[in-house]
């Protein structure tokens, strides 16, 4: 799966979890850019991503994700 495809899939998950149809993701986006994305629902987004892509992140990977790009690269790394 290519990076662009992954970000499209993740975008759908963001729209579903954060209940906001207007979200359009790009690599540099952080919690600052999406007001409804906070540490309380971040974990819901992560578990939905893991179920969707059938992967499991370890703690260190989760702690080091700084933006959407990191998350998508993390997904790609796990799917190899």
């Amino acid at each position: 799966m290519e990076h662009d495809e992954i970000i499209k899939e993740v975008n759908k998950i963001f729209i579903e979890v954060f209940e906001d149809d207007s979200i359009v993701l790009h690599d540099n986006m952080t919690t600052e850019d999406i007001p409804v994305w906070d540490s309380l629902n971040h974990i819901q987004m992560i578990t939905t991503v893991e179920k969707h892509f059938k992967i499991r992140f370890d703690l260190n990977e989760l702690l080091n994700f700084k933006d959407v790009g990191d998350l998508c690269r993390g997904i790609k790394g796990k799917m190899k």
């Binding site: 906070d38 540490s39 309380l40 974990i43 992560i46 578990t47 703690l59 989760l62 702690l63």
Partner: peptide, 29 residues
């Protein structure tokens, strides 16, 4: 939750990064 993102941010974000996140990640199941 909005209040704690605006109040004593250096402490609340510290607790978020070093306590809340590791616990909530490991207990996500």
């Amino acid at each position: 939750s909005d209040f704690w993102r605006r109040w004593h941010i250096s402490l609340s974000s510290w607790v978020n990064d070093y306590i809340y996140n590791p616990i909530s990640y490991t207990r996500r199941d």
